[in-house]
């Protein structure tokens, strides 16, 4: 049973690397395409761990430190896995003027983690975004890819609690 599921995992992993290889070939293994490849890799694997970064470095014939340097320079790339759910709060100027910072503080207190981190139970990642471009609806939150406008502290807290509850139930 255990062996079987491991095998299935292996198969999945191979497939994922195949996808990555395809993208690398499309860019002719060019080091100039590093950012494109990192985008593809994160899309496939969810985040970029060292093993994956080494794989990319080898394929693109780049020094590992440069790959690591690029991956950590850009905010979009994640080196750690994300929580089951994502709560993206827009912290653009319009949202700030309409009180996004209060929502931010409240959520950090509720989740006992800062923005950019994941709750200790792995259920929710708090992420701040630089303007999602829905300034007319400020303050804006994007919860699991769905946009919610005119967010309030109470609504934000309630939604996060719901997310964490459902995860708890699922685990039970």
């Amino acid at each position: 049973m255990v062996a079987q599921s491991k095998k299935a995992d292996q198969g999945k992993i191979d497939n994922r690397y195949k996808l990555l290889d395809r993208a690398i070939t499309k860019h002719h293994n060019s080091g100039y395409a590093l950012i494109e490849i990192l985008h593809v890799a994160q899309g496939i694997f969810g985040y970029l761990d060292n093993e994956l970064l080494y794989y990319i470095a080898n394929a693109l014939k780049l020094p590992p430190s440069r790959v690591y340097g690029v991956a950590t320079f850009y905010h979009f790339f994640r080196l750690k896995p994300q929580g089951k759910h994502t709560f993206v709060l827009c912290t653009g100027t319009a949202c700030y003027v309409k009180g996004a910072n209060e929502i931010q503080r409240a959520l950090e207190q509720e989740c006992k983690c800062s923005f950019g981190e994941t709750t200790s139970d792995g259920s929710v990642s708090l992420i701040s975004a630089r303007c999602v471009g829905s300034c007319g609806l400020a303050p804006v939150a994007v919860i699991d890819d769905k946009v919610y406008g005119k967010m309030t502290v109470d609504e934000a807290l309630q939604r996060v609690r719901e997310l964490r509850e459902t995860e708890k139930e699922r685990n039970v």
Binding site: G31, V70, F73, Y74, F76, F77
Partner: peptide
């Protein structure tokens, strides 16, 4: 496609970013 760096709006930074660099 950029990857979340405001400084890449600066033209010499943008050039380096297009070339896959910091």
């Amino acid at each position: 496609i950029g990857a979340g760096a405001f400084v890449c709006g600066e033209e010499t930074a943008l050039i380096r970013s297009i070339m896959g660099r910091r």
